[in-house]
Simulated scan of single mutants.
Amino acid sequence: MKKKLSILMIATIMLVFSSVAAASAQSAPVSYKPSLVHKSGKMAYEHMNYLANVIGSRIASTENETLAANYIEDQFERMGLETEVQPFSYTRRGGIHHSSNIIAYKPGKSSKQIIVGAHYDSVSVGKGVDDNASGVGVMLEVAEVLKKINTPYSIVFIAFGAEEVGLQGSKFYAANMSSEEIENTVGMINLDSLAVGDQMYVYGGLGEEGFIRDQALNIAEKKNLDVETNPGLNPSYPKGTTGDWSDHAPFKTLGIPYGYLEATNWEIGALDGYDQTVEHGGVWHTSNDTLEFIETEYPGRIQEHLSTFSTLLTDLLKFMNKTNTSK
């Protein structure tokens, strides 16, 4: 009896230790080889892959969205950035739902700030590779590249929750900015759906007629990056601008100049940017928004896009200069 009891006790102790070890392993931040950060797009790809394939679809207010938020928080903290979780609630279809924004702060030469944002939730179909693990991946890579570089402005990196259900995260953040913080914000750069569209774009508006867009286009020209802007074929969306359907919109409403990086195709369909590709139309919000589909149909496109957007955003944040303004 004692022998059986001892065996049982040993088994129980081993089970407890294995459970603790498993819990510790799950809570430990995912680490990547530091060399990846020196190869534009490589680190972004790893983050994108983790969000889409390890976590999966990240529907607003679900456990998977929370797992994605935890992952992003861990990554910002691993980089050594001052990180904050901003929880919020919203009402939808008669119920109260909960999500959060993950915010990381990188000081620069000036206390004036640039906000860089990307939403981390997705819809229920597909795995949200393009929309928007790609944007989060580029944001995280650029945050790591710039963490020790003295940029002209301080940078606030924000991973927004619950974008797919009405821009809830960005609306909450913008609504809670003080007048001083609004005045202190030089611009907001939004990253959304970077992986699959036929062409890479940058848009912008407000404040010196889109200075963020114009500086990005100058960088693209100098570095021979295949990035252009909306050609303005649809009069509803004038040249260089875009619609108010993503996380730049609440900041635009506050009068904060915006820039917006995206991959789509403004020259097909209704000329409104919703049809991303000639062959398959829109990939976002469909079962095709998976790594397997995109890499099979467009081999090398994800790598090219992540590298291009990462290079462009890095240089934009390193050299941005808003002249002739109090900001």
Rank of each mutant, 00 (worst) to 15 (best):
S6A: 11
T12L: 15
V16P: 00
S18T: 15
S18A: 06
V20Q: 03
A22Y: 02
S24T: 15
S31R: 07
S31L: 06
A44N: 03
E46D: 00
H47R: 09
N49L: 00
N49W: 00
Y50G: 04
V54I: 14
I59F: 07
S61V: 14
E63V: 15
Y71G: 09
I72K: 04
E73D: 14
E73V: 12
D74I: 11
Q75A: 08
E77I: 15
E82Y: 00
S89C: 07
Y90L: 03
T91N: 13
H98L: 05
S99R: 04
S99K: 05
N101H: 09
K109V: 06
K109G: 11
S111Q: 09
Q113T: 11
I114W: 01
G117R: 01
G117P: 09
H119R: 06
S124M: 13
V129G: 05
D131W: 03
A133W: 05
S134G: 06
M139W: 08
V145A: 08
N150T: 11
Y153Q: 07
A162P: 04
A162M: 05
E164R: 02
S170A: 12
A174I: 09
A175R: 14
A175F: 01
S178M: 07
T185M: 02
L194T: 02
Y203N: 09
G205P: 04
G207T: 09
G207K: 03
E209L: 10
G210D: 09
I212D: 01
Q215C: 02
N218T: 15
I219K: 03
I219C: 12
E221H: 10
E221W: 00
D226N: 01
D226G: 00
V227S: 01
L233H: 13
L233Y: 06
P235H: 13
T241D: 07
D244L: 15
D247F: 00
L254W: 03
L254V: 08
G255S: 10
G259S: 11
L261D: 02
A263C: 14
A263Q: 14
T264R: 08
N265I: 13
W266D: 08
G269F: 05
A270K: 14
G273E: 07
D275N: 15
Q276G: 11
G282Q: 07
H285P: 01
N288L: 15
N288W: 08
D289I: 10
L291M: 13
E292G: 05
E295C: 04
R301M: 14
D315Q: 13
F319G: 15
K322D: 10
N324R: 12
T325C: 00
